[in-house]
Amino acid sequence: MTQHDQPDCFELIRTVNDFLESIEGKLHGSDKYGLQCAKHVLNIIAREIEGAPDGSLQTADDIKKLCLGIREGKYDDNWPETLRHILDHVVEKVKISDPNHLRGI
């Protein structure tokens, strides 16, 4: 893998975030809302890069098979285990999207 020059991607994200914060006071209405969205997206990106790579990631094929199986009732007899398994994967996604959500915030 290529070793990039400074700054690393986290510093780049922080710098963009700082810039957005510096102009926040000048914005109103939909622009202000857009800026908050942009900061949220930056945070998602930062957490995603930091969290990768995850060896337990399901492939698209795994997911497709699981979905079809559930629809056909193949997991009806293993309902609690299936739910637990799917919840584990959902929690991994939530940790990236908005970890506060797991604390009920």
Binding site: Y33, G34, C37, A38, H40, V41, I44, L83, I86, L87, V90, V91, K93, V94, I96, S97, D98, H101, L102
Partner: peptide, 22 residues
């Protein structure tokens, strides 16, 4: 931007859904 974020909000709803379904 808000529509893009909707995609990453789905897992938050799934989490609440599974907690209710549990």
């Amino acid at each position: 931007l808000p529509f893009a974020i909707c995609g990453r909000n789905i897992c938050l709803i799934e989490y609440d859904l599974l907690m209710a379904l549990k």
